[in-house]
C-alpha cells in the first residue's frame, strides 16, 4: 500500500511540475523542449520494446507508425476539426493518430503469422519505406515538402499525461496473462501454442498496441515541432528508437525509460561537440553492446513496476525439495 502512495505522490508532483514549469518559466525554453522530447521518446521506446523486447521480433518500422500517427492527428487539427478552443480537440486528434497507426500495425502483424526474425524485420522495413514514399506522393499533405502550420498544442502537461498513460498501459499489458502470452511467444512459439496461446491473436494485439502508442507519440511530436515531413520519419528515426531500447535493455519497461532518458540527455550534453557528437553517440552504443550486450537493465525491471497482485502470496516458511 505504501508503495502506491509514493508512486501516486510522485506522479502528482510530476503533474504539478509539468504545469508549473512552463507557467512560471522555471526552466529555459530549450530545457523545456528537451523535457518534452524526452516524454515522446519514452513513449516511442516503451512501445517499440513491446515488439522488439517482449515479443522478441526485430521491428525496424517504428518510425513508419509514428509517421502515420503524426500525419493523421495533424490532418485532423489543421484541416478537419474546428479551431474552436474545445478542450477535446487535441486529445481526440492524438487518439485518432494512435488508432490510425494501430490499423497499419495490423498490416505488419499479418505477415508476422508466417515469418519471424530477419524476414519479418524486412517486412517492417519495407513497410516504413512505403509509408514514407506514400506520404511523399500525397500532395494534399504537402508531399515531400511536408505539412506546415500545425498548432503547438503539445504542452508539457499533455505530454506528461500521455507519457504516464502510455507507460502505465504497456506495463499493465505485460503484467497480465494476455501479455505473458507475448513473452511466451518470444521464449518458444511452439510451446506457447501448446499451452493454449492463440499466437496469431497475440501477435496482432502486440503490434496494434505498440503501433498505437507510436502513433500517439507521432501526434504529440507533430504538435510540438509544428512541422512534419516524410523525411523526419526515415530510417534514422527508427535507428534512434532502436538505440534507446537496446541501450536500456530489451524486455524491460524501466530499461526503455532509462534508455530514452540517457539517449535524450546525452544527445543534448554532447551537442557542443558538433559533428563529433554523432560519432561519439554510436561509439558509446557500440562500447555498451560490447561490455553489456543486454543493455543497462538487461531483462530485469524496477521491482516497483510489478503490480502487487502479480506477486505470489507465499506461506512464511518455505521448504526446498
Amino acid at each position: 500500500m505504501n508503495r502506491h502512495w509514493t508512486i501516486g505522490l510522485l506522479l502528482l508532483a510530476g503533474a504539478a511540475l509539468s504545469w508549473a514549469i512552463p507557467r512560471y518559466e522555471l526552466l529555459n525554453p530549450y530545457l523545456q523542449a528537451t523535457l518534452m522530447y524526452l516524454g515522446i521518446n519514452i513513449i516511442l521506446a516503451t512501445s517499440l520494446n513491446l515488439i522488439n523486447g517482449y515479443l522478441g521480433e526485430f521491428s525496424v518500422g517504428h518510425a513508419g507508425f509514428m509517421a502515420v500517427g503524426a500525419y493523421a492527428s495533424a490532418i485532423l487539427t489543421v484541416m478537419l476539426l474546428p479551431v474552436g478552443a474545445a478542450a477535446w480537440r487535441f486529445p481526440l486528434a492524438i487518439m485518432a493518430g494512435g488508432c490510425a497507426a494501430a490499423l497499419t500495425g495490423l498490416v505488419v502483424a499479418i505477415p508476422a503469422f508466417r515469418t519471424r526474425g530477419d524476414y519479418l524485420a524486412i517486412v517492417t522495413l519495407a513497410f516504413a519505406m512505403i509509408v514514407k514514399s506514400a506520404l511523399e506522393n500525397i500532395n494534399a499533405v504537402g508531399g515531400p515538402r511536408g505539412l506546415l502550420g500545425i498548432e503547438g498544442l503539445s504542452t508539457m502537461p499533455w505530454i506528461f499525461a500521455w507519457t504516464v498513460l502510455s507507460v502505465w498501459v504497456i506495463r499493465n499489458f505485460v503484467y497480465s496473462n494476455p501479455g505473458r502470452g507475448v513473452l511466451a511467444i518470444r521464449e518458444d512459439e511452439v510451446a506457447a501454442e501448446l499451452m493454449g496461446v492463440n499466437t496469431r491473436r497475440v501477435k496482432i494485439r502486440a503490434f496494434m498496441i505498440a503501433s498505437f502508442f507510436a502513433g500517439v507519440a507521432g501526434g504529440l511530436f507533430a504538435h510540438l515541432l509544428q512541422f512534419i515531413s516524410p523525411r523526419i520519419f526515415d530510417i534514422t528515426k527508427t535507428t534512434d528508437i532502436l538505440v534507446m531500447v537496446y541501450l536500456g535493455g530489451v524486455g524491460s519497461i524501466g530499461g526503455s525509460i532509462v534508455g530514452a532518458s540517457m539517449f535524450t540527455v546525452l544527445q543534448e550534453c554532447l551537442r557542443p561537440l558538433g559533428v563529433w557528437r554523432m560519432v561519439i553517440m554510436p561509439l558509446l552504443l557500440v562500447l555498451l553492446m560490447l561490455f553489456r550486450p543486454r543493455g543497462i537493465m538487461g531483462l530485469r525491471d524496477f521491482p516497483w513496476f510489478r503490480p502487487s497482485v502479480e506477486c505470489p502470496q507465499r506461506p512464511p516458511e518455505t521448504h526446498p525439495s
Partner: peptide, 18 residues
C-alpha cells in the same frame, strides 16, 4: 544474443557515416 551484434552493426554504420 543475436540482436546485440545487429545493434552494434547499426552503431558502427553511424560512426562510419559521421
Amino acid at each position: 544474443p543475436r540482436v546485440s551484434a545487429v545493434i552494434t552493426a547499426l552503431g558502427v554504420g553511424l560512426m562510419l557515416e559521421h
